[in-house]
Design a protein around this nucleic acid. Structure first.
Length: 187
DNA sequence: CTTTCGATGATCT
DNA sequence: GATCATCGAAAGG
């Protein structure tokens, strides 16, 4: 099954399967190690109340980006999933930096590589993604998606930073990754 | 180490 | 007017 076919499927299947893929923009990026799924009937999703000017690209074709402004300051990027009209997406929350490290350090203004892509706002800044990329097709340059050498081992937790549907385990991470947006807290 | 809080503006009620 | 799929600095232990 190709990635394009996969992206037409359910957003939770996509979230699990996209872990381990490498996303690059103009040769800069890394391995996807953390995402969150936002489904059509999900109270925490921007698409929950139906199409608006902001979330229009979530209802567009899968494999495109939905980029929105967060807290008036940051950009956050989703991979649109399911068929056009469905309104589902996978929020990119963390990458393991692998390509163009120096470029990312400059954009982020940090020297600690753990702070390059470990968070949805950090990730977009490191890759240079902004509202101008809303609706962009990930299967066209400057974007590049590279499959993992072997399927990633994926684990789930509750999503972060939301106030609705807080108990749903719809945050997907590569097990054992040392690049998540937040470290596991002590039990 | 952990918790709190300000920034900053679009979006929606 | 309130909320917000965040981040980083500051304050507290």
């Amino acid at each position: 099954m190709t990635l394009a076919q996969l992206l037409e499927g359910g957003v939770h299947d996509v979230a699990a399967a996209i872990i381990g893929w490498t996303l690059c923009v103009d040769g800069v990026g890394g391995r996807i190690v953390e995402v969150e799924a936002y489904a059509e009937d999900d109270p925490a999703s921007h698409a929950f109340a139906g199409p608006t000017a902001r979330n229009a690209s979530m209802f567009g074709p899968p494999g495109h980006l939905y980029v929105y402004r967060s807290y008036g300051i940051h950009w956050c990027a989703n991979v649109v999933c399911e068929r056009p009209g469905r309104g589902a997406g996978v929020l990119l929350r963390a990458l393991e930096p692998t390509h163009g490290l120096e470029r990312m350090r400059l954009r982020r203004g940090v020297t600690d590589d753990r702070l390059l892509c470990s968070g949805p706002g950090r990730l977009t800044q490191a890759l240079g993604l902004t509202g101008a990329d809303d609706g962009a097709d990930l299967f066209q340059p400057p974007f590049e998606l590279i499959p993992p050498l072997a399927p990633a081992v994926v684990e789930r937790t509750v999503r972060l930073g939301i106030s609705r549907a807080v108990d749903q385990p719809w945050r997907y991470l590569e097990a054992g990754s040392s690049w998540p947006s937040r470290r596991r807290r002590a039990a």
